[in-house]
Write a protein that binds this DNA or RNA. Sequence first.
DNA 1: CGGCACCTTGAGTATCCTCAAGAGAGGTGG
DNA 2: CCACCTCTCTTGAGGATACTCAAGGTGCCG
Lengths: 220, 220
Amino acid sequence: MNVFPALASQIADRAPPLAPPESEGIRLIGVTTHMTRDQEVFGEGEPADHVYRVVRGAVRGFRILSDGRRQIYDFYLPGDIFGIERGAEHRITAEALTDTILVVARRSALGHGSDGATAWRLWDLAMVELHRSHDHALSLGRRSAGERVADFLVDMAKRIGDGEHAELPMSRHDIADYLGLTIETVSRTLTQLQISGLIELAGCRSIHLRRPTALAELCA
Amino acid sequence: MNVFPALASQIADRAPPLAPPESEGIRLIGVTTHMTRDQEVFGEGEPADHVYRVVRGAVRGFRILSDGRRQIYDFYLPGDIFGIERGAEHRITAEALTDTILVVARRSALGHGSDGATAWRLWDLAMVELHRSHDHALSLGRRSAGERVADFLVDMAKRIGDGEHAELPMSRHDIADYLGLTIETVSRTLTQLQISGLIELAGCRSIHLRRPTALAELCA
DNA sequence: CGGCACCTTGAGTATCCTCAAGAGAGGTGG
DNA sequence: CCACCTCTCTTGAGGATACTCAAGGTGCCG
């Protein structure tokens, strides 16, 4: 807002972050359950009566077009909460990537209209999701296959591992449907990155970022 | 959650929508100001001390990669609120598309940690934005140029006009950077739609959907 | 050891992009 | 009021990226 200084001084203030300090997470008390590979947690259109937290394993959240094309919006990893909806129905489908342990809670356990602290935590969670979705849209809209894959690997190494290693819980097909590419393009790009010495593949699920900085610079 | 009926009955409930009924909008009291075409409302990285509502005109929200590639995340139209951030800084840049009138309010005017009703309204707003971002990601990742343009036109006609007409406030360049295409591809696709009899262009900003249903079906 | 799923690699192709030129629209000044 | 200028949009030709189709390789499980 550098454009109208008069106005700026008129209404200037330096507001503290909106969310209260104790909003660092959502408490989720519920039933622990076990899902097997490819099992559906909930489907698009089903009643959104429950919310979920990943304890172990991983989940994909996605939608499918009428002709079968699939777009994965996000992978939910241990610690992540998912399945919270604004309306009465789920807008996406969620499936376990591998054997996965979840905590399932009633949606009503999140609180009600009168519960301000929970509302701020939910807002915070939604904003983080929105940030991820925006970053994702930037990749899908404006990045090449190489940039998308590099970005994906850096992100996964950060979320799953120590920033340099990652045991991917998802297949090439899942990666492709997350990045808006085909499995062949993902595969070719990974081998190119390996040939360039940027990464090392030990089996197709285990990835070592040999030059994380160079990889991050690839993301443009 | 059709997969473990025992669990379902164990924790089944039919929770009402989380947000309280009176959360249908954010009240925004502030200073009315005027922006001219291409003027920056706020830039990425600047302090997010204010929030905005569009009164007249339109705004683009976007980010730019180091080499100049731009991804527009959304267009803000009359009635829309934008500029609300989770942290202290704006994560995107906002610019007026045309001559635009905004209401500018202090960020602190949105309320504080103790204000539950506002928190629910903000959560609701964030979730709507997230839905839009997901739909957008689906287009960017999995749809052809033709499908993206058709989807864009249907969406714009709904938001701006009566569902069949739209006076677009944005240039081909803006449309291209929203849809992850080039201006040439957008232009070619529009003329194809016109040749097919699905739309009618009266000047390049005025669009009439001649067969809205057929157009919507194109979106897959 | 065999079968099956997943992954990799290759060849050919389609879609969309790049580069380039021409057409249309809107604004300014003579 | 018209002419000109500029910016935007359209159209065309050629090319690059990623897709499709197809075959072969790898690893996991029974």
